[in-house]
């Protein structure tokens, strides 16, 4: 497959796995290449109160240090081979997160919106099925349970194999 970055220049890649909260505005600002980036798309995921359990009050995210960063790097590079991207940023938190806190940020910039939208969705679909993170939900009554993988996430990842550039 030809390297789509040929016309977009060198890819700026930022992969962060961290316990600390992140600043979405700062993440967005550092993605833009002034004058070249015509489009930016991003996704931010938050802790919600309805998961496998009801009345979730917090989650704990476990991961596989080393493999996690490598998997996110591979996913970003796969996206950059499919679309002409200027920058990709993936920030994922670990440890205990309270209800409403941001878990994950994915941002991409490109010359055009279609590539930016598609690459952002592709990265999230791949992250959900390939990056070694595991979520445990904590409820107000003190109970806790590991979240089960969703069949829909696997299907979402598979559609990209069938249709190379669009879901």
């Amino acid at each position: 497959m030809p390297d789509a970055n040929g016309e977009a220049g060198e890819l700026a890649l930022r992969i962060q796995v961290q316990e600390a909260a992140f600043d979405t505005a700062a993440e967005l600002a550092q993605l833009v290449r002034p004058g070249q980036s015509g489009a930016q798309a991003s996704f931010t995921g938050f802790v919600r109160d309805f998961g496998d359990a009801r009345e979730v009050c917090a989650i704990t995210l476990e991961h596989y240090p080393g493999m996690t960063e490598a998997a996110l790097h591979d996913i970003a590079q796969d996206a950059a081979r499919r679309w002409p991207l200027h920058a990709v940023s993936i920030v994922h938190r670990t440890g205990r997160l309270a209800l409403g806190e941001a878990i994950v940020f994915v941002g991409v910039t490109s010359a055009h919106r279609r590539a930016a939208f598609a690459a952002c969705e592709f990265i999230m679909d791949m992250l959900k099925t390939r990056a070694p993170f595991w979520k445990k939900e904590h409820c107000a009554d003190g109970s806790a349970q590991w979240v089960a993988a969703r069949h829909g996430d696997t299907e979402a990842a598979h559609r990209w194999q069938q249709a190379p550039d669009a879901p």
Partner: peptide
């Protein structure tokens, strides 16, 4: 070597 359940991040 690592053994783990299906991943559930994001």
């Amino acid at each position: 070597i690592a053994f783990f359940p299906p991943v559930t991040g994001g």
